[in-house]
Design a protein around this nucleic acid. Structure first.
Length: 466
RNA sequence: GGUCCCUUCGUCUAUCGGUUAGGACACAUGGUUUUCAUCCAUGAAAGAGGGGUUCGAUUCCCCUAGGGACCGCCA
């Protein structure tokens, strides 16, 4: 049995979006599940549109979400000579031919087809013509001699049997008139050279598959297995495109979505294993299979991503969470000052309880990270004279407390409630605003304990609230 | 227009001929709570339509409708 090898083959002509990441994930998981190899192949043969920055973004994205590829990434443009060699071989074997149609001529044919409302397909006019008829002033393209009669059957691992008439596949170009290879040629040759056994890709490639299979057959190569997965759709139900916002990994990471959460979400988008929702990395490798992939396209659901992230925030190890938070703040917010790190880490246990994203944790913990309280404009208005008295009373009482904990603080608060003839809110709210700048936030005891006595007293005597 | 694919709660999905059609997210209500949350409980919510096949169809077949992908000397 041949060792399983899969690949992810994006073209660096735009930022990698979340649909591509899912394709990469499925390929990666399948290879891991089968104890095989997984390669990254950068299809950069479109010199006009390929950009180094996109290539880097792709590599960075895969790394971020934890997909590692075997060997160094393949750069398709390095292999162009191999592709051309195969084209010439096909030409020599009579399985491809030179076509001397000018691009104007082809355009004209397309236009005519459109007018008549019939599907355009190249009319194979050079398929059987002799070289002697070739016009001297035209550089020919090389076309593959596709099958004309009969049907072809694709035994797709996801879609089942798909059969089409061979005459719907035209004699496609494999070498342009500048001598460079086209996608279907390059992809087939590379997949063969890389010993790829399973091609898992979006079902927008299905027609290409019929072309590529013919190349394999013509070259007498072993045909790999194919699995065409349904595309991810936007809320509007259209194919996810590079223009859609919030579709690159960066868009998610900057709002504080964690890699594991997104990985888990993507795994369950179009794939399922019974009723199971949460998969550790190991579980996903162990359980992933092609049978579990659905046949219908699925839509992105931000609520789901958020709630998955929330789940991971609440369930992962706190050291790990802290590391991710630190990294997140460094990248997208302000770096956490080193003297605040311990406090943040200790407070994670309650900061994370109200967070769906790392950004939420950052916001919840802002009051610890800042040196000066930033008051919410509306909330500070709630500090009236009565509130000021509560704050000042509390500060006085605090003076005689050594250890800050719920047991020492609760009696003070209860006492203040009585002496000021109010309820808990009447005490808790002014204190919370004074200490954090907002009436929303963690429990008041958590806030006080996390800040420490000195800092609390400093904030309670701030000019802005007294 | 042609070819191909798809169709279960709003969303992601389970079901592989017999179920009160299950779960998760979101939503609603109630409870806990010292604000906001969390948490817990409860609820509402689905087989596109029409024909077959069958004792019995969400499940198998056909048609219709709707949606999508592809139809480049892009990948």
């Amino acid at each position: 049995m041949k060792k399983v090898a899969t690949r992810f083959a994006p073209s660096p002509t735009g930022p990698l979006h979340i649909g591509g990441v899912r394709t990469a994930l499925f390929n990666w998981l399948y290879s891991k599940n089968q104890n095989g190899k997984f390669y990254l192949r950068v299809e950069d043969t479109d010199k006009e549109r390929s950009k180094e920055e996109y290539k880097n973004q792709i590599i960075k994205s895969l790394k971020w979400i934890g997909i590692n590829y075997d060997e160094k990434e393949y750069i398709q443009s390095n292999k162009i000579k191999d592709h051309i060699k195969i084209a010439n071989e096909l030409l020599k074997n009579g399985q491809a031919y030179k076509c001397y149609c000018s691009s104007e001529e082809i355009e004209e044919q397309k236009k005519r087809a459109k007018q008549k409302k019939i599907p355009y397909i190249y009319d194979r006019r050079w398929r059987d013509k002799s070289e002697a008829d070739a016009p001297k002033n035209i550089q020919p393209v090389i076309r593959f001699k596709s099958k004309i009669d009969g049907t072809s059957l694709l035994k797709d691992l996801v879609q089942g049997d798909v059969e089409i008439d061979n005459n719907t596949i035209e004699d496609f170009i494999i070498l342009r008139n500048d001598g460079t290879p086209t996608y279907n040629l390059s992809a087939s040759v590379d997949d063969h050279l890389m010993n790829v056994t399973h091609i898992i890709r979006g079902d927008d490639h299905k027609i290409n598959t019929f072309k590529q299979i013919q190349i394999y057959q013509a070259m007498k190569w072993e045909i790999p297995s194919f699995a065409h997965i349904p595309l991810i759709h936007t809320i509007e139900g259209k194919k996810l495109s590079k223009r859609d916002k919030a579709s690159t990994l960066d868009d998610y990471s900057k709002i504080g979505i964690m890699p594991d959460a997104l990985r888990n979400y993507l795994l369950r988008l179009g794939w399922s294993y019974k009723d199971k929702e949460i998969f550790t990395l190991d579980e996903s490798i162990k359980l992933f299979n092609l049978e579990g992939i659905g046949k219908s396209p699925s839509k992105l659901d931000m609520n789901r991503i958020l709630s998955m992230n929330e789940h991971y925030i609440k369930s992962i190890d706190e050291n790990h969470l802290f590391d991710q938070l630190t990294e997140y703040c460094k990248l997208y917010k302000n770096e956490i000052q080193s003297d605040k790190k311990d406090k943040i880490k200790e407070s994670l246990i309650f900061l994370k309880n109200k967070a769906k994203t790392l950004e939420d944790i950052f916001n919840n913990g802002q009051y610890i990270m800042v040196d000066e309280v930033n008051f919410n404009k509306d909330d500070i208005k709630l500090i009236d004279d009565k509130a000021k008295k509560v704050i000042s009373d509390f500060n006085t009482q605090l003076g005689s407390v050594d250890k800050l904990n719920k047991e020492t603080l609760e009696p003070i608060v209860n006492e203040l409630i009585k002496s000021n003839d109010t309820n808990f809110k009447g005490v808790g709210q002014p204190l919370r605003i004074a200490l954090t700048g907002s009436k929303f936030g963690p429990g008041i005891y958590d806030i006080i304990i996390s800040l420490g006595k000195e800092e609390v007293r400093k904030r309670l005597t701030s000019k802005k609230i007294s």
